[in-house]
Computed example of a mutant assay.
Amino acid sequence: MTKQCVDVSGEMRSYIGAGAAMPAVPHGWRLFALGGLAEAPARVAIVAAEAGAELCAADLVLAVDAAACRRLVGDAPGGACRWYLPTDLRSVALAITDCALPEPARATLRLAKSIELLLALLTRAAAGELVAADAAGELLEGDAVRILAARRLIDENWREKLTLDEIARSCGVNRAKLTRGFRAMFRCSVADALTENRLTRARHMLRETDLAVSSIGYACGYRNNASFTRAFSRRFGMPPSQLRQVAA
């Protein structure tokens, strides 16, 4: 039994289903194998067409012409690259593999989501934003999984007033190990990750909504406008009110 194929375009195909045979793809194409989607931590790897076992085990394989990669982002990732799959991209991948819509709506959604997922992977890989699967360094595997769980908790619950102790307790590590492990894996502190989520969302809301600046700051976790303006200005080089004027 072969994986289900979605012909996205003449330069790309998606292959859906784990434990199934992988059809041959044209020479020079890049294969992005995504596995562990049903359980953390999910991963994505660039593998060779000859890597039969790894391809068969993947829940989803994105096959794309290297020339298309270069045209889209100026580069075509190669080699034995393996990354942890960010939470938001795992959700996109699950929308492809677990789509319950009837045909032809399912085929249309899978085609669109395949393009979305590929572009996100290419742009984040090119920007160095994907965490290498070996980035855990000297952390034990179990601790690395817990640190990843902490990152997911932050990425999904950044609006809440999270503390180091609460995050550590939720993920089953102590505060010191969370602090050291988080910096080792993500090259930033827990506080930095929370701030980046909040300010990135705030920038989006400033550009896409008419909400008052103070309301956006509050919605993004800042209890007063002064602290929001200071943090935003440090991150983006201008206060939120000025960014809104520039974006208008």
Rank of each mutant, 00 (worst) to 15 (best):
73 V>E: 09
76 A>F: 01
61 V>H: 04
64 V>E: 00
63 A>Q: 00
60 L>E: 00
147 I>P: 01
208 E>F: 08
73 V>H: 06
80 A>L: 14
56 C>G: 15
124 R>P: 07
177 K>C: 10
167 I>F: 05
221 G>F: 02
147 I>E: 02
88 D>H: 12
157 N>R: 15
108 T>M: 10
39 E>K: 14
199 L>F: 04
120 A>E: 09
20 A>P: 00
115 I>F: 01
176 A>K: 14
73 V>K: 09
247 A>Q: 07
145 V>W: 10
61 V>Y: 02
104 P>F: 03
233 S>C: 08
18 A>D: 02
9 S>P: 03
121 L>C: 12
19 G>E: 00
215 S>V: 11
35 G>K: 02
14 S>G: 06
179 T>G: 10
127 A>I: 12
58 A>I: 05
86 P>C: 05
129 E>C: 02
124 R>K: 13
131 V>S: 09
170 S>V: 13
42 A>R: 01
211 L>H: 09
53 A>W: 02
98 D>P: 08
90 R>M: 11
144 A>Q: 07
216 I>R: 03
35 G>Q: 00
100 A>L: 06
228 F>N: 03
129 E>W: 01
190 V>I: 04
39 E>A: 12
81 C>Q: 14
178 L>N: 07
32 F>Q: 03
89 L>P: 14
21 A>H: 06
189 S>Y: 01
214 S>H: 08
104 P>Q: 03
195 T>S: 06
171 C>H: 04
118 L>Q: 10
30 R>K: 14
239 P>M: 02
150 A>R: 05
113 K>M: 14
182 F>D: 03
246 V>C: 11
191 A>C: 02
35 G>H: 05
156 E>V: 10
183 R>F: 04
201 R>E: 12
202 A>G: 03
24 A>C: 05
165 D>Q: 13
27 H>P: 13
65 D>K: 12
148 L>D: 04
215 S>R: 13
55 L>R: 15
235 R>E: 11
17 G>T: 07
26 P>R: 07
191 A>N: 06
215 S>F: 13
101 L>H: 09
198 R>L: 05
71 R>A: 10
84 Y>E: 00
228 F>M: 05
109 L>E: 10
234 R>T: 11
23 P>M: 00
162 L>N: 04
177 K>T: 13
215 S>H: 15
70 R>N: 11
153 L>H: 12
124 R>G: 11
29 W>Y: 08
207 R>K: 13
76 A>Q: 04
19 G>Y: 01
112 A>P: 00
133 A>P: 09
44 V>Y: 04
112 A>I: 09
159 R>T: 15
180 R>G: 03
114 S>A: 11
159 R>I: 14
181 G>F: 08
132 A>I: 13
247 A>E: 08
153 L>M: 14
142 G>T: 10
121 L>F: 06
163 T>E: 12
59 D>C: 04
122 L>T: 05
202 A>K: 06
55 L>M: 13
157 N>C: 15
98 D>N: 12
226 A>M: 10
84 Y>F: 11
69 C>A: 06
240 P>Q: 01
246 V>Q: 15
157 N>G: 14
194 L>Q: 08
24 A>V: 07
205 M>R: 09
232 F>W: 04
238 M>F: 01
112 A>L: 02
144 A>R: 13
211 L>K: 07
158 W>T: 12
162 L>P: 03
81 C>I: 11
161 K>I: 14
